[in-house]
Amino acid sequence: MKPSTLAACGLAAVLAFSSGVASAKGCIKGAAVGAVAGHYAGHHAVLGAVGGCFAGRHIAKTKAAEQKAAQQRAGQGDAAHAGTLQTAAPAH
C-alpha cells in the first residue's frame, strides 16, 4: 500500500471515530458515495472517501440544526397558545 493511501485511510478513520456517533452517520454515507465517485474519476477512491466524509458530516450537521430549529419553533408555537384556552358552549 502506498504511504499516501495509508495516511489518508488513517486520517479518515481518526476523523470518523473522533466525531462521535451523531456525525458518523453522515461521514459513512458521504465516504461511500465519495469513494465510488473517486474511483470512477480516476482511481482516487480514498481521496473521494475522505472528501465525501467531510461533505457528509457537513450535510448531517446542517440537517440536524434545521431539525432542532424546527422543533424549537414548534415548541414556542404551542407555548404561545397555551394561555388562550377556549371552552365550548354547552350543548342544548
Rank of each mutant, 00 (worst) to 15 (best):
S4Y: 12
L6M: 13
A7C: 10
A7H: 08
A8H: 04
A8I: 11
L11G: 04
L11Y: 11
L11R: 07
A12E: 04
A12V: 05
V14K: 03
V14Y: 12
L15D: 05
G20E: 05
S23K: 15
S23E: 15
A24M: 14
G26Y: 03
C27H: 11
C27Y: 07
G30L: 06
G30K: 03
A31W: 02
V33R: 09
G34C: 07
G34L: 08
G34P: 00
G34M: 02
A35W: 05
A35Y: 03
V36Y: 10
A37Y: 10
A37I: 12
G38S: 05
H39D: 05
H39T: 11
H43P: 00
H43F: 09
H43W: 10
H44F: 12
H44Q: 12
V46Y: 05
G48P: 07
G48N: 04
V50G: 06
G51R: 04
C53P: 07
C53T: 09
A55T: 10
A55K: 09
G56T: 03
R57N: 11
H58T: 15
H58Y: 15
A60G: 06
A60H: 08
T62F: 12
T62N: 12
K63I: 13
K68I: 00
K68C: 00
A69F: 02
Q71H: 04
R73Q: 06
A74N: 03
G75Q: 06
G77C: 07
G77Y: 06
G77E: 13
D78P: 01
D78N: 00
A79F: 00
A80R: 11
A80I: 04
A82N: 06
G83R: 06
L85A: 13
L85I: 09
L85R: 14
T87I: 10
A89N: 06
P90R: 14
H92Q: 12
